[in-house]
Design a protein around this nucleic acid. Structure first.
Length: 423
RNA sequence: GGUGAGGUGGAUGAGCGGCUGAAAUCAGUAGUUUGCUAAACUGCCGUACGGGUUACUCUGUACCGCGGGUUCGAAUCCCGCCCUCACCGCCA
């Protein structure tokens, strides 16, 4: 959620930035400011009226003490009048505040200066590429065939037991998942991230705090009986740890990592290119997340990108890093880098990580602040990234490393998997 | 799920329906002093939204788990909900 003060102070700039994100209703900014003006007026009126009630009430107390009943009664009459007024103002304020708020949450985060303009994934900028695209042997096949060949994942039974997009991993497939989770977490904690196992469901306030609500209501599984949401990413429970917290400047940066399954309804996004592990309703992911001083967040973003890049390099996968254009970025992000690995048998790039600086967009809604050296309250910045999402890493490991003898795993996974090859 | 106790500022913990935004202690912080692995003393030490100044300061309102109600007036009384703890029940 953007801060109204920023809209007021830099109105034209805000509209220009919203344009980069292809936001279609710049007039919303003006109507928000107008509503805020109204809110202020009502607030002033409410406060002075309430003030009169308060002083009159004190007066009544005194008069009663002195036994001046008649005068007290007179005052009471006055207060009754004020109270009618207050009730009306209060109602109006609630209404205006709600409308203001409803409009404010419709504004996406403002893209950073670095964000390239553009509307589609074709407009993303390739920042770096690395690794080498392997030359596959003649019998090479896509991962969904390899999965069957080595009996690693069972989609049919998953469909039977739950539904489409909920596969069973089994045997060496399950073990490879576990090995990767373990390795990723070890890699992250070695870099100073504190490991968490979060709740896999959150309440409404938390879903709202990180911006899943109201924007992505339909994307989450909702446990209606208890009002919980299945987490679409561990970012939601982790970031909400610091909801409504006032931190010390010395607490920053806060670095967290967690493994969790991620549940996504992916309503409407199933079409082509979703075969095999490319898109699922439940998938495994290890996440890294930081809460930082606002002056440091872009340095931290670079640091996180390098951290994840090294991880992808350790997995010996061909990859590229994209700087997302305004039209392809997430709603809450100010700057996002996507990591894609090349899936040699499918001959396409698969997104395996998304690293973003949210600046204060999340923390404003979460009210996660700190007191600076001057004692002033400031919003922290929040950043997060996948390190990494497993299914597509799994798919590309299979595809890129397949040989006539089996699938050769990268060296870093040997000790976790307990073998060098799947055959 | 049942019964009981309880939820007050960073922490502990007082708070007769008006003098309580809230005692006290600790922690924190600024300073004084004595000097020495620190002690004593003094000041400051919640957040949000307004108004006025924009440098600090000043001022109004709201907030004592959350939401309602009673009242001229509620941290204090009433109702609902949430949470914590204890015991019971159930159970990996």
């Amino acid at each position: 959620m953007l801060q109204v003060n920023v809209l007021r102070q830099r109105t034209d700039w805000v509209k220009e930035r919203l344009g980069v994100k292809n936001f279609k209703q710049p007039e919303l900014v003006d109507s928000i400011i107008a509503l805020d003006d109204e809110r202020k007026k009502l607030q002033a009126d409410y406060d002075t009226t309430q003030s009169r009630i308060n002083s009159a009430s004190k007066e009544i107390g005194k008069l009663m003490g002195q036994g001046k009943k008649e005068e007290a009664e007179e005052q009471k009459q006055q207060v009754t009048g004020f109270k009618i007024r207050i009730a009306g103002l209060s109602e109006q304020m609630t209404e205006v505040e709600k409308e203001l708020h409803d409009k404010l949450v419709q504004l996406p985060n403002l893209p950073a200066e670095l964000v390239p303009p553009g509307k589609t994934p074709d407009d993303n900028e390739i920042v770096r590429e690395g690794g080498t695209i392997p030359q596959l042997y003649d019998g090479a096949v896509p991962h969904w065939d390899l999965i069957t060949k080595y009996n690693l994942v069972d989609f049919e039974t998953g469909s039977k037991v739950t539904g489409r997009g909920f596969p069973f991993y089994k045997g060496k497939g399950a073990k490879l998942q576990r090995a990767m989770i373990q390795y990723f977490l070890d890699y992250n904690t070695a870099a100073g991230y504190t490991e968490y196992i979060p709740p896999f469901m959150v309440n409404e306030a938390s879903a709202y705090g990180t911006g899943q609500l109201p924007d992505k209501e339909g994307q989450m599984y909702h446990v209606t009986e208890d009002g919980f949401y299945l987490i679409p990413t561990s970012e939601v429970p982790l970031t909400n740890i610091y909801r409504e917290e006032i931190l010390k400047e010395t607490d920053l940066p806060i670095k967290m990592t967690a493994y969790s399954p991620c549940f996504r309804r992916e309503a409407g996004s199933f079409g082509k290119d979703v075969r095999g592990l490319n898109r699922l309703h439940q998938f495994e992911k290890v996440e890294v997340l930081q809460i930082t001083h606002p002056d440091k967040s872009y340095d931290v973003l670079d640091e996180m990108v390098q951290h994840i890049e090294k991880l992808v390099q350790n997995l010996e996968l061909p990859y590229r890093i994209l700087r997302l254009c305004g039209g392809d970025m997430g709603f809450t992000s100010a700057l996002t880098y996507d990591f894609e690995v090349y899936s040699a048998a499918q001959q396409r790039w698969l997104e395996v990580s998304s690293v973003s600086n949210m600046e204060s967009y999340q923390t404003n809604r979460l009210k996660c602040r700190f007191k600076d050296a001057n004692g002033k309250m400031q919003l922290t910045h929040s950043l997060n990234g996948s390190s990494l999402a497993l299914p597509r890493i799994f798919a590309s490991l299979l595809e890129n490393n397949q040989t006539a003898d089996g699938i050769k795993l990268p060296q870093v996974l040997h000790k976790y998997f307990g073998a060098e090859i799947i055959n």
